[in-house]
Design a protein around this nucleic acid. Structure first.
Length: 531
RNA sequence: GCCCUCGUAGUUCAACGGAUAAAAUGCAAGAUUCCGAAUCUUGCGAUAGAGGUUCGAUUCCUCUCGAGGGCACCA
């Protein structure tokens, strides 16, 4: 890929020019301003201190080696010391041909990378999936798809908190049996119309009743996840299964053997403070029941050790961020490294109505389900609405506004580009287009070049996201690509008299369609031929 | 009280420490004999406040103000 080629060449140039010095971290990026080229690097700035020279001088010295090494680019130094790269037309067209060669596999990495497990959503099986879960749900779904495409052995997973030993399952059971009211909405949503289920759990222990009810709720949620949210998990993992397999028992012994626990006040404590947490944490209550933390240690040990994932990514809501040090401490104690576990916190969605906050409480049954939202604004608009925002900023959600915005949602702008492409190909009577033998020498108009450039930067966008998890960049890129396509379309007729121009523009349209399709599939948004 | 996030145009929101802070929406003005106007063009408008580090700060550090979250033998 172009980006990597430049990186390597800069590294080589520094060593060649200055001998064996420490090469600091430098950046290679695509400048916002097109006057600054297709790529630029700040390497001269980061070397300035060490070499005690001005950035302009350093850039001037490095450029000789770079020019020799990168004939694909025109390279210039611009003040105050950036080195800027312009892709030659030949290199541009040659990269463009790759889209035809790889088609729906364009941007797919051939090199195999580490195994990654992405766990997300994992809503408690005590109720429906609400709006606040939307961010993590769609974010995780798209991240996994991107990782897979970039060659990671990535899998998605949903963790079901259904341990019979847990308080929440027992309380759920009692609620279902009408003995307690921990979850007021449960009756309306799951019990009322289901006498068979009520009869079935009536005589069970609270734990078994809760487990049974949780399975029922979970099945409902799973259907919504797959059918309504368009998320297909590689795996659903049951917390209770860790008890059945004996892994919880084994872990207790293991931790004791490693001298990581002690008894106090009749409970069993984990020495979390020793590994970076603010205090020690309970693993077994004085009643002898395990806490969620114990099974969570087992679960993550299972991910890293038993299933051999090199890296695990957990996507959690902001209400769990205080829990992160505890989990990390436990994994550190078990011998794993910081880089083995990534926790991504998605900030809360605040529900507002006419500027005033509406308190959303799952416990009190005051919430809007994600299913409702999707029904209200449509899946495509809903997915885009969540996916276009970074996960770490707070988000205000006004359903009225969301309805309004859904009509003007940028997703339609992108889908419209796809529909226009389909329409042109249909009009031209072509489905699949093979590249021209002589190359694409007639594509020289400004809008054509801009569009080609945007298309060939596509693999780099996926790579960046795979590296830094900023999934929202994909929606932004998709929007820009649509804009570049619409601009091209507005100014230049594809179906024209001139046969060469006709064929080449048709190729450009086709290649754009290929990339749009990949992006929309990745986002989990439909790619319509007609709207 | 202690800890963690966040604060950018009227609104919804972008920006690995990089060059002139990007868009959408809104408002104003304009574009269609021709592949779909759900489109295109132009204009208006923002980094909460005060210091500091740096060649360079929306980004890092300190304080103030404001919003959200966490401080369980719940999950």
């Amino acid at each position: 890929m172009l980006y990597n080629e430049i990186r390597d060449s800069i590294h080589k140039a520094v060593v060649k020019t200055y001998g064996k010095i420490e090469v600091p971290n430098f950046s290679v990026e695509t400048p916002a301003n097109t006057a600054h080229g297709d790529f630029s690097t700040n390497v001269a700035f980061v070397l300035a201190k060490q070499l005690k020279k001005s950035p302009t001088d350093i850039a001037g010295e490095l450029i000789y080696s770079l020019v020799k090494d990168l004939p694909k680019f025109d390279i210039k130094v611009l003040p105050p010391g950036f080195i800027n790269f312009w892709l030659s037309e030949e290199a541009l067209k040659s990269e463009f041909l790759n889209i035809f060669k790889r088609r729906e596999k364009y941007g797919q990495s051939m090199t195999k990378k580490e195994k990654v497990l992405v766990e997300f959503l994992s809503a408690n099986p005590t109720g429906p999936i609400h709006i606040g879960n939307g961010r993590g749900a769609f974010f995780g779904d798209v991240l996994v798809k991107i990782l897979k495409r970039r060659g990671y052995g990535a899998k998605s997973e949903y963790y079901i908190n259904n341990a019979k030993a847990s308080e929440q399952i027992k309380n759920l059971g009692k609620t279902g049996q009408g003995k307690y009211d921990a979850y007021p909405y449960v009756f309306d949503m799951y019990i009322k119309d289901n006498p068979a289920l009520v009869k079935k759990i009536k005589k069970m222990t609270p734990a078994n009743a809760g487990f049974t009810l949780a399975r029922f709720i979970q099945e409902k949620n799973k259907k919504i996840i797959e059918k309504k949210l368009n998320i297909k998990y590689d795996n659903y993992f049951s917390e209770e299964s860790l008890f059945a397999s004996g892994e919880v028992q084994k872990m207790k012994k293991f931790l004791a053997k490693k001298d990581l626990v002690y008894e106090k006040d009749g409970a069993l404590w984990f020495k979390a403070e020793k590994f970076g947490d603010t205090e020690d944490r309970v693993l077994l209550r004085s009643t002898g029941e395990p806490t969620y933390f114990l099974t969570d240690i087992v679960y993550h040990f299972n991910k890293l050790k038993k299933r051999k994932f090199h890296r695990i990514v957990n996507i959690w809501g902001a209400d769990h961020h205080g829990y992160a040090p505890r989990l990390k401490a436990s994994l550190k104690a078990l011998g794993f490294e910081e880089e083995n576990i990534q926790i991504i916190i998605t900030q809360f969605v605040r529900l507002v109505e006419q500027g005033k906050e509406v308190k959303m409480s799952k416990r009190k049954g005051k919430f809007i389900t994600l299913e409702d939202l999707v029904g209200e604004v449509g899946l495509d608009a809903a997915r885009f609405f969540f996916l276009e925002k970074t996960s770490d900023t707070h988000m205000d959600f006004d359903l009225k506004l969301a309805r309004e915005r859904s009509v003007k949602n940028p997703v339609y702008y992108i889908q419209y580009a796809h529909a226009r492409i389909a329409n042109i190909l249909k009009k031209a009577g072509r489905k699949k287009i093979v590249p021209r033998k002589g190359g694409y020498k007639y594509l020289r108009e400004k809008e054509e070049i801009v569009l080609i450039k945007k298309l060939i930067f596509f693999p780099g966008v996926f790579q960046e996201i795979a590296e830094d998890n900023h999934v929202n960049r994909l929606t932004k890129y998709a929007y820009e690509l649509a804009r570049d396509f619409h601009n091209f379309y507005e100014r230049h007729r594809v179906i024209t008299e001139d046969k060469d121009i006709y064929e080449e523009r048709l190729g450009l349209v086709y290649a754009s369609g290929v990339v749009f399709k990949i992006i929309l599939d990745t986002l989990g948004i439909s790619a319509p031929d007609k709207m």
